[in-house]
Amino acid sequence: MDRFNIGDSVAVRIDSPRGHYRTPIYIQGKTGIIESICGRFKNPERLAYGYDGYPLKTLYTVEFLQKDLWPDYKGNIADKLLIDIYEHWLNSINEG
């Protein structure tokens, strides 16, 4: 079962674990909405070190409003940034 549904509010974990990870710093700590569920993929944090990448991780496209990311953002207030984030980097807003 996927942890999140489309439309759920999520916050990106703030972390800088040793080694390889695919969650850029600029998006960490920001709050967005699950835009789509991309499927389950091998975990790049394991693949990078010669492991088989299992267990698979669900990957989500998460949508953020640009104005929530950059205080001085100029443009349409509906402008968005969409980014692909693995499940273990996301916390439900309600989970705190």
Binding site: L59, Q66, L82, I83, I85
Partner: peptide, 8 residues
């Protein structure tokens, strides 16, 4: 909409 392709 900026798409940042970070993953798969």
């Amino acid at each position: 909409r900026v798409l940042d392709s970070t993953a798969d």
